[in-house]
């Protein structure tokens, strides 16, 4: 998976150097060509089936803040879905996230916050347990989400790195699906931000792996990249089969590991 993300990142660098298309029809052709190249890199020759009724992708048509675009992926038959890919074609690293569900997941709805660098197609691809791929696409108007840096200095951005928060969006009920939001404090530096003291560009440092388990059983695993917004947020569902501990292990591209356990039901709320 790591290799695939890297390959896609390279592809992003190469293709963004191509001259921009002049006309709308050319733009559509260029988008189709780009997606063809991307999908081959990520999925090889596997067919991508029409995801209507299977997977849907919600995002604002025009982003308010290109550095934080809230997106929602809804899976009609979540239990049959083993993983979901989010691909933002025009981003420097187009494969924004790949999420694999564990046995305790209730994969009905997923929310992420992403950076969008240019007017772009965005695809959600759901992979079912039998290995079929279902795709849905949206076009989104936003630009500058990757090249526009976070609005604070490194010291402020790094303050509290690895802190986590868990918000339960429904009351905790044993054996019934629970929707939760996980926030991870992390600047997700994308390599385009400058350190104010050294006046050097801060090297990319971003969350690249997250594992969420409940009482030791996998809820989900996420591979991610610089397309996730500063302080990554993920909203997901799972089924608690009793009180216990939701454990999060997040890993960043510099090899730092952040762990946090949340005892459920939460007592602080």
């Amino acid at each position: 998976m790591k290799k695939a993300l890297f390959a896609v990142a390279l592809l992003g660098l190469v293709t963004t150097l191509a001259p921009p298309p002049a006309r709308a029809s050319d733009a559509a052709t260029a988008r189709a060509r780009r997606w063809h190249a991307l999908s081959e890199t990520i999925f090889g020759k596997r067919p991508l089936l029409d995801g209507s009724g299977m997977v849907s992708l919600d995002a604002p048509y025009r982003a308010l803040d290109a550095a934080l675009v809230p997106i929602k992926i809804t899976l009609a038959e979540g239990r049959n879905v083993k993983s979901v890919y989010l691909i933002i074609d025009e981003n420097p690293a187009p494969l924004a996230a790949r999420i694999t569900f564990g046995p305790d997941a209730a994969p009905h709805e997923l929310k992420l916050r992403v950076r969008v660098n240019d007017y772009t197609d965005m695809q959600a691809v759901a992979e079912t347990a039998d290995g079929k791929l279902y795709m849905t696409r949206r076009f989104i108007k936003a630009s500058g989400g990757c090249s526009a840096p976070v609005g604070e200095d490194d010291a402020a951005a790094l303050a509290g790195i690895g802190r986590m928060k868990l918000n339960l969006l429904r009351p905790f009920t044993v054996n019934s699906p629970l929707e939760a939001q996980l926030l991870i404090r992390h600047p997700n530096f994308n390599g385009m931000q400058m350190n104010q003291l050294t006046r050097l560009y801060t090297p990319a440092r971003f969350i690249d792996k997250v594992d969420i388990t409940y009482n030791g059983s996998l809820v989900l695993h996420m591979d991610s990249d610089i397309s996730l917004s500063t302080n990554p947020a993920i909203t997901f569902g799972f089924v608690p089969h009793g009180p216990g501990t939701l454990e999060v292990v997040a890993h960043d591209s510099q090899g730092t590991v952040f762990r946090h356990g949340f005892a459920l039901p939460l007592t602080s709320d």
Binding site: L64, D65, A66, K141, A142, S143, G144, G145, A148
Partner: peptide, 19 residues
């Protein structure tokens, strides 16, 4: 696209000026 490009877009990147 909206022909009137915005300051908000200039600041924060909501719209495309490339056209």
């Amino acid at each position: 696209m909206n022909p009137i490009s915005s300051r908000r877009a200039l600041l924060f990147g909501g719209a495309c000026f490339c056209c």
